[in-house]
C-alpha cells in the first residue's frame, strides 16, 4: 500500500467517522438517527460550492453560512421526519428520514443543477509538499486533522460544559436528566442540529477531493452508518476509531484486490464483525431487566 493511499484512507476514514458521529449523537440521546445523513453531507458541499463559486462569496462566509444551514436542516429533519413518529411509538422515522433525503437530493438536483461540479483549485490542493519521497497535498492532512479535532471538540464540549454534561446525562438516563431540569426534547433537537453540523463539515472537507453532485452522499452515508454500527453507535470514540479502521481497510483492500472488490469485502467484513460482536467492535450490550 502506497503511503499516499494510506493518507487518503485515513482522510476518508476520519470523514466516515465524522459523519458517523452524527449518527452517534442522535442515537445516543433519542435512539433515532437521520438515516439520510449522507444527503445532509451533500448539502454542506453543495451549499458551500454555490455560495463560494456560483455567488462568489468569500470562502469563510460561504462555509459558515453552509454550516448554519446544515445545522438548520438537522433541526428540520428532527421536527418533520423523526418527532411525529417517535411520539406515536413508531419506527417509521427510518423511512421518513429516507424520504426526506430523497426530497433533499431532488430539490438540490433542480436548484443546484444536474451536472456534477468540482471545487476550484485552492492552495489546499495545489501547494503540495514532499514528505520524504511522498507528494502530499495540504488537504490530505487537513481532513484527518479536522475530523479528529471535531471529535476532540465534541468530547470537550460534552465533558467540560454545562450543556454538554446535560447531553451526556440525557444519554445515560433521560428521566433522571429531566429531574435535573434538563429539557430532553430540546436536547434531542440539539443532537440533530449537531448531526447536521457534522455532516456539513464532512461535506465541505471532502468536497475538494470529491465531485459535488446531488447523489454524492448516498454511498458515503451508508458507509458512515456501517461505521457507526461497527463502532457500537453509543460510544463516541469507538465510532471515530471504527471510521479510521474502515477507511484504512478500504484502502488496503483497494491496494491488494482492486477497487472492484472493495465493497464486497468491506460489507462482508461488517456482517462477520457484527456476527462476532453483536454490539459493534467497541459497543456494550444493553442490559435488560426481567
Amino acid at each position: 500500500m502506497s503511503a499516499s493511499t494510506l493518507i487518503t484512507g485515513i482522510g476518508l476514514g476520519s470523514m466516515y467517522g465524522l459523519l458517523a458521529l452524527g449518527f452517534y449523537v442522535t442515537y445516543a440521546v433519542s435512539r433515532t438517527v437521520n438515516f439520510a445523513q449522507g444527503s445532509a453531507m451533500m448539502l454542506g458541499a453543495v451549499l458551500t460550492f454555490s455560495f463560494a463559486v456560483t455567488w462568489g462569496w468569500p470562502m469563510w462566509t460561504a462555509i459558515l453560512a453552509s454550516l448554519a444551514l446544515c445545522t438548520a436542516w438537522g433541526v428540520v429533519v428532527e421536527r418533520v421526519g423523526v418527532r411525529p413518529f417517535v411520539r406515536r411509538g413508531s419506527d417509521a422515522w427510518l423511512m421518513a428520514t429516507v424520504a426526506m433525503g430523497i426530497v433533499l437530493e431532488n430539490v438540490v438536483l433542480f436548484t443546484f443543477g444536474k451536472d456534477p461540479r468540482g471545487m476550484p483549485p485552492s492552495p489546499l490542493t495545489t501547494e503540495s509538499f514532499y514528505l520524504a519521497d511522498i507528494k502530499v497535498q495540504p488537504l490530505q492532512v487537513v481532513i484527518p486533522v479536522a475530523g479528529i479535532a471535531i471529535a476532540v471538540a465534541l468530547h470537550w464540549f460534552s465533558h467540560r460544559t454545562r450543556h454538554g454534561r446535560a447531553l451526556l446525562a440525557v444519554v445515560q438516563n433521560p428521566d433522571a436528566a429531566r429531574l435535573m431540569g434538563i429539557d430532553v426534547t430540546a436536547a434531542i433537537v440539539v443532537t440533530f442540529a449537531l448531526s447536521g453540523l457534522f455532516a456539513g463539515v464532512a461535506g465541505i472537507l471532502i468536497a475538494p477531493l470529491f465531485i459535488i453532485s446531488s447523489t454524492m452522499g448516498t454511498l458515503f452515508g451508508i458507509k458512515a452508518f456501517a461505521v457507526a454500527i461497527l463502532g457500537g453507535i453509543t460510544n463516541a470514540w469507538g465510532v471515530m476509531v471504527a471510521g479510521l479502521v474502515y477507511g484504512l481497510a478500504e484502502a488496503l483492500i483497494t491496494s491488494l484486490l482492486g477497487s472492484t472488490y472493495t465493497h464486497i469485502v468491506t460489507f462482508a467484513l461488517v456482517i462477520v464483525a457484527l456476527a462476532a460482536r453483536p454490539h459493534g467492535l467497541f459497543g456494550r450490550a444493553e442490559v435488560k431487566k426481567v
Binding site: 442515537y27 451508508i222 452508518f225 454500527i229 464486497i264 460489507f267 457484527l274 456476527a275 459493534g280
Partner: peptide
C-alpha cells in the same frame, strides 16, 4: 445466523451489508 445475534439498527446494518454483498 448473524442476523439473529443482532437487534434494531445493528440488524438493519447486517441486512444492508447483505444487499450490497449480493449486488456487488
Amino acid at each position: 445466523i448473524p442476523a439473529l445475534r443482532v437487534r434494531g439498527p445493528y440488524l438493519a446494518m447486517v441486512t444492508i451489508a447483505f444487499g450490497f454483498v449480493v449486488e456487488q
